[in-house]
Design a protein around this nucleic acid. Structure first.
Length: 873
RNA sequence: GGACGUUUAGCUCAGCUGGUAGAGCACUCGCUUGACGUGCGAGUGGUCACAGGUUCGAGUCCUGUAACGUCCACCA
C-alpha cells in the first residue's frame, strides 16, 4: 500500500493478492503441533454438483470467523475441507448429460458410467472449492478430502463390515420409499411431505356370497389391483360378524378376506380400509400381522406391471383414471369427494414417492440411538442454540431403521457378495474369490450406499480413521460443527451415533446451528423462484469482506436472516470507513517509525479510547466464545465508527497539528488502537484488515497469525472515561443547540462554562474549540452570563453569547419545553421514591441511583428555570 | 395432530441474569470540517402483537390468544 492511497477501498486490488500471499506462506496448513491445543472444524462437505450459494457463503463465513479467531488465539487450528460425492444428485446429472447424447445407463454399462462420473468430478468437483477460496476461507487445502476417495471409502467398508458382524446391518424385504424418477430407494429422511389436493373415491366391495357389500374410501384407487384384504376394527360392532367373510375385489374379481386389526380407526370414514401391503407402509404392517400376500402391481417407474394386461404400461395417474372408469362401469363406485392430503415427494427431484416392497439393506437404529441421545442429554455435545436439542431428541427417540441401499452406481458399492450356487451372503472388505461355504461363484451386490452413510463418518474418516493416525489422535474429536438446521436429521444426528459407535468418542463438542439466508422479502432463495443471489456476484461487486460482514451482522444462532443489497452496501461503506481511517493515520505518520506500543504517557482522550478499546477486546472475545458472532461484530462496528473514527480521530487532530511529543504520542495511540482493532476485526473481514495491517507499523509477517488481543486490567481507566464523557456530552449539547438555532458551523462563538468539574472542562476546552465551534472557552465554578444562550447538561451550565442570532421567542419556547421535560422526569423519579415498597424492597443501590438522579434532575430544573427568568428580564 | 420459532421506529434487526427503549437503512435540516459525500453534524419517528398474572417495578419472567413461519407425525 503506497502512502498516497485511493480515497475508495477497492477489494479487487487486494483480495486475490492477499489470498495468494496466505497460501504461499502456508498459514492455513495445520501443523499438528502436540504442544498446542487443537481446534478443529470439518467443513460440511458441499456436493460436487453444487455451485456456491448464499447458504454456503453463510456457513463458511461463520466457520472461517471461528477458525481465524482460534488461530490467532494460539490454537493449533485445523479447518478440514472437502466435497461430497452426492450420489443421487450427481448420478442424475450424468444420466441427464447422457440422455442428451442419446445414451442410457444400460448403454454404457456400470464401468462406462463410473468413468463418466469420475470425469465429471474431475471437471466440476473443484469448482465449489475455488469459490470457497474467493470468500477467504482459510481451509487446510492440503488435507482436502472427498467422500469417495480412498480413505473415506476404506472407512465406509470398515463400518459396514463391523456393523454387519454386530448384527446392526441387515438385509430384508421391507416397504421403502421409492422414487420412480431417480429409480432408487430413499430413506425416510429424504422424503418431503406436501399438501396436495386430491380425492376420496368411495367404493363398494361385494361379498362373495351375495349378501351385500362393504363400503370404503381410498385416495389411490389404482392400488386396488394389489388389495389382499379389507380390514375393520376388531371392536367395531357394525362389522364384528363380517370378519372372516370373503369379498370379491372389483375389476380383478379376486377373493379377499375381511380381517380385523387395531390399526383401523372406527370413526374415520366408514371404518373400513382396503389393505394393499405392497403399496402402503401401514398396510404392509397389517399384511405382515395377518400373513397376507403382497401383490405388487407397479413397475419401478411406477407403471402398472404385466400382471394386469388391461392397464399394463399406464403410469399410476393414467391407470387411476382408467380404473375409476371401470369401477364406475361395474357399479362399484359410490361417489367422489374432494380431499386434501399429504403426499411424500423425493427431496431431490420432487417426484411423488411410491412405497414399494423390495429387498434392501438397513441399519438397525435403536441400539445406536441410545448413546447418541445420552451424549446430548449429558452435555457432551451442545447444540447452539439449545432449543434444537428438542428436535434432535424427538427424532432420535422415534427413530426407525435406516434404509441405506440405493439402486445407483455412483457411490460406495455395498461389500456384500452373493453365492450364485448356495445363496450364501458374504460381507467383507475385499471381494472373495469364491463362496467361502461352497466354493461357488460369487457376485457383488449391485447397489451402493446412501450418500449420508459416508458423510456420517466425515469427522473421523477425514482424519484417517480406521487407522490410528497422528491427525486423528490430535484433532479428534473435532471442536465445532457449523451447519444449518435443515440437515440436523440427515447429517448431524448420524455423525453423532456413528462417531460414538465406531470411535467411542463424540464427533464434536459444539454444534453451531444457523438459519437460512432469505431474500429481501423473506422468501427462501430457490431456483424455481429465481430469487437466488449469487455470492460470487456480490463479491465481485462489493468485495468478500463486505459479503462476510453482511452475513455476520445481525446473525443470531438458529435464526434465519434476510439478505439485501442495502445491507451489503452498508458493509461496503464500513470497509471504506476503515480504509479511510487507515489512510488518515498513514498520512500522519512518517513511514513505519512509530512503535506499535502505547506511549509512556497517555492524555485524557488516549485513556478514554484505550479504556473503551480494552473493554471491546473483552466483549468481542466473550461473544465469540458464546457463538454470538452478530453481537461481536456489532460491537466492533460501533467502536470503529463511533468511538474511534467519529471521536478519537477527530480529537487526535489537535495534537497532530501541534506537533512535537504530543503529536508523537497521539500517533502511537492511533497506530496501537487501529492495528489492534484490525486484529479483532480480522476474522470477520480478513482481506482489508491484512492489507491495512501490513502497511501500518507492525510486528510479525501477517495479521492472521498475530496474537489475539487480550483484556488488560492495566488499560482500564474508568475515571478518565467518565471525565471524557462529560466533555463529549457538553460538545454534543452545544452542537445540538447550534443546529437548532441554525447557526452556521463556520460561525465561531465564545463558550462560558459554569461547572463543578472545572479541571475536566479546562482540559476539554481545546476539544470544544475544535468540535463545537468554540472560538474560546472559559471555565469557572460560578459563571453568570447575561444575554446568552444557556445550555444545561448534568455536569455544567454552558453559556454562548449569540445575542444577535437568537430568536428570543423561540428560545423561550424551547426552554419551556425543556423545563416541562425535566419536570416530568423528576415527577417520574419522585413517584418511585415516594413509593414505600420500592424504597424498602428494591436493592439499595437501585434506590440510591434514583435518589442521585432526582438530585441532578432538580439541579437541572433549577438552572433551566433560572435561565428562563433571565430571558424574561 | 405434536413441537419450535418470530411478532420492538417506515424497513431490516439488537436489547445478556427485570430498573423511564437502541443501531443500520430510509426520511428531515445543516455542512467544499485537510481520512472518508460509500462522508460529517443535528434531528423526526415506538402505549415493545393482544389479554391476563408474578413483582415495588415487565420489551425482559409465567399463563393464555392471534398472525406469520419452520420442523416432525399422519386416518385409508
Amino acid at each position: 500500500m503506497a502512502k498516497e492511497l485511493a480515497k475508495l477501498y477497492d477489494p479487487k486490488n487486494v483480495e486475490d493478492r492477499i489470498y495468494d500471499f496466505w497460501l504461499e506462506k502456508n498459514y492455513f496448513h495445520a501443523k499438528n503441533d502436540p504442544d498446542k491445543q487443537p481446534y478443529t472444524i470439518v467443513i460440511p462437505p458441499p456436493n460436487i454438483t453444487g455451485q456456491l450459494h448464499m447458504g454456503h457463503a453463510l456457513d463458511n463465513t461463520l466457520q472461517d470467523i471461528l477458525i481465524r479467531w482460534r488461530r490467532m488465539q494460539g490454537f493449533d487450528t485445523l479447518w478440514l475441507p472437502g466435497t461430497d460425492h452426492a450420489s443421487i444428485a450427481t448420478e442424475a446429472k450424468i444420466v441427464e448429460a447422457m440422455r442428451k447424447e442419446g445414451l442410457s445407463k444400460d448403454d454404457v454399462g456400470r464401468d462406462g458410467f463410473l468413468e463418466r462420473a469420475w470425469e465429471w468430478r474431475r471437471q466440476y468437483g473443484g469448482r465449489i472449492i475455488e469459490q470457497l477460496k474467493k470468500l477467504g476461507s482459510s481451509c487446510d487445502w492440503a488435507r482436502e478430502r472427498f467422500t469417495l476417495d480412498e480413505g473415506c471409502s476404506k472407512a465406509v467398508l470398515e463400518v459396514f463390515c463391523r456393523l454387519y458382524e454386530k448384527g446392526l446391518i441387515y438385509r430384508g424385504e421391507r416397504i421403502i420409499n421409492w422414487c420412480p424418477h431417480c429409480l432408487t430407494s430413499i430413506s425416510d429422511a429424504e422424503v418431503e411431505y406436501e399438501d396436495q389436493a386430491g380425492h376420496f373415491w368411495h367404493l363398494r366391495y361385494p361379498f362373495k356370497d351375495g349378501s351385500g357389500y362393504l363400503q370404503l374410501a381410498t385416495t389411490r384407487p389404482e392400488t386396488l389391483l394389489g388389495d389382499t384384504a379389507v380390514a375393520v376394527n376388531p371392536n367395531d360392532d357394525r362389522y364384528k360378524d363380517l370378519v372372516g367373510k370373503t369379498l370379491i375385489l372389483p375389476i380383478v374379481h379376486r377373493e379377499i378376506p375381511v380381517i380385523a386389526d387395531d390399526y383401523v380407526e372406527m370413526d374415520f370414514g366408514t371404518g373400513v380400509v382396503k389393505i394393499t401391503p405392497a403399496h402402503d407402509p401401514n398396510d404392509f404392517e397389517v399384511g405382515k400381522r395377518h400373513d397376507l400376500p403382497v401383490v405388487n402391481v407397479l413397475t419401478p417407474d411406477a407403471k402398472i406391471n404385466e400382471d394386469y394386461p388391461q392397464y399394463a404400461g399406464m403410469d399410476r395417474y393414467e391407470a387411476r383414471k382408467a380404473i375409476v372408469k371401470d369401477l364406475e362401469a361395474e357399479g362399484a363406485l359410490v361417489k367422489i369427494e374432494d380431499y386434501s392430503h399429504n403426499v411424500g415427494t423425493c427431496y431431490r427431484c420432487g417426484t411423488t414417492v411410491e412405497p414399494r416392497v423390495s429387498l434392501q439393506w438397513f441399519v438397525k437404529m435403536e441400539p445406536l440411538a441410545g448413546p447418541a441421545i445420552e451424549a446430548v442429554e449429558n452435555g457432551d455435545i451442545r447444540f447452539i442454540p439449545d432449543r434444537f436439542n428438542k428436535n434432535y431428541f424427538h427424532w432420535m427417540r422415534n427413530i426407525r431403521d435406516w434404509c441405506i441401499s440405493r439402486q445407483l452406481w455412483w457411490g460406495h458399492r455395498i461389500p456384500a457378495y452373493y453365492c450364485q450356487d448356495c445363496g450364501e451372503i458374504t460381507v467383507q472388505k475385499d471381494a472373495p474369490a469364491c463362496c467361502p461355504k461352497c466354493g461357488g461363484k460369487v457376485e457383488q451386490d449391485p447397489d451402493t450406499l446412501d450418500t449420508w452413510f459416508s458423510s456420517a463418518l466425515w469427522p473421523f474418516s477425514t482424519l484417517g480413521w480406521p487407522d490410528d493416525t497422528e491427525d486423528l489422535r490430535h484433532y479428534y474429536p473435532t471442536s465445532t460443527l457449523v451447519t444449518g438446521y435443515d440437515i440436523i436429521t440427515f447429517w448431524v444426528s448420524r455423525m453423532i451415533f456413528s462417531a460414538l459407535e465406531y470411535t467411542g468418542q463424540k464427533p464434536f463438542s459444539d454444534v453451531l446451528i444457523h438459519g437460512l439466508v432469505r431474500d429481501a422479502l423473506g422468501r427462501k432463495m430457490s431456483k424455481s423462484l429465481g430469487n437466488g443471489i449469487d455470492p460470487l456476484e456480490i463479491i465481485d461487486q462489493y468485495g468478500a469482506d463486505a459479503l462476510r460482514l453482511t452475513l455476520a451482522t445481525g446473525n443470531s444462532p438458529g435464526n434465519d436472516m434476510r439478505f439485501s443489497d442495502e445491507k451489503v452496501s452498508a458493509s461496503r461503506n464500513f470497509a471504506n470507513k476503515i480504509w479511510n481511517a487507515a489512510r488518515y493515520i498513514l498520512m500522519n505518520i512518517d513511514g513505519c517509525d512509530v512503535p506499535c506500543a502505547l506511549p509512556e504517557t497517555l492524555a485524557l482522550e488516549d485513556k478514554w479510547v484505550v479504556s473503551r478499546y480494552n473493554r471491546l477486546v473483552k466483549e468481542v472475545t466473550e461473544n465469540l466464545g458464546k457463538f454470538e458472532l452478530g453481537i461481536a461484530v456489532s460491537k466492533l462496528y460501533d467502536f470503529v465508527w463511533d468511538v474511534f473514527c467519529d471521536w478519537y480521530i477527530e480529537l487526535s487532530k489537535i495534537r497532530l497539528q501541534q506537533g512535537g511529543d504530543a503529536a508523537q504520542d497521539a500517533k502511537q495511540v492511533l497506530v496501537y488502537i487501529m492495528s489492534n482493532t484490525l486484529k479483532l476485526l480480522h476474522p470477520f473481514m480478513p482481506f482489508i484488515t491484512e492489507e491495512i495491517w501490513q502497511t501500518l507499523p507492525h510486528e510479525g509477517e501477517s495479521i492472521m497469525i498475530s496474537p489475539w488481543p487480550v483484556f488488560d486490567p492495566a488499560l482500564d481507566f474508568p475515571t478518565e472515561e467518565a471525565e471524557m464523557q462529560r466533555i463529549i456530552t457538553a460538545i454534543r449539547a452545544i452542537r445540538n443547540r447550534r443546529a437548532e438555532m441554525n447557526v452556521a458551523p463556520s460561525k465561531k462563538a465564545k463558550v462560558f462554562i459554569a461547572t463543578a468539574y472545572q479541571p475536566t472542562f479546562e482540559r476539554g476546552a481545546m476539544f470544544m474549540q475544535r468540535l463545537a465551534s468554540a472560538s474560546e472557552v472559559a471555565v469557572d465554578a460560578n459563571f453568570e452570563i447575561e444575554g446568552a444562550v444557556c445550555i444545561v447538561t448534568q455536569d455544567a451550565k454552558i453559556f454562548i453569547p449569540l445575542g444577535e442570532l437568537v430568536d428570543l421567542e423561540a428560545e423561550r419556547a424551547r426552554l419551556g419545553k425543556e423545563i416541562a421535560k425535566a419536570q416530568s422526569d423528576l415527577e417520574f423519579i419522585n413517584k418511585k421514591l415516594q413509593n414505600e415498597s420500592f424504597v424498602s424492597k428494591a436493592p439499595a443501590a437501585v434506590v440510591q441511583a434514583q435518589r442521585d438522579q432526582a438530585e441532578k434532575c432538580k439541579e437541572k430544573l433549577a438552572l433551566l428555570e433560572e435561565s428562563l427568568a433571565k430571558l424574561n428580564v
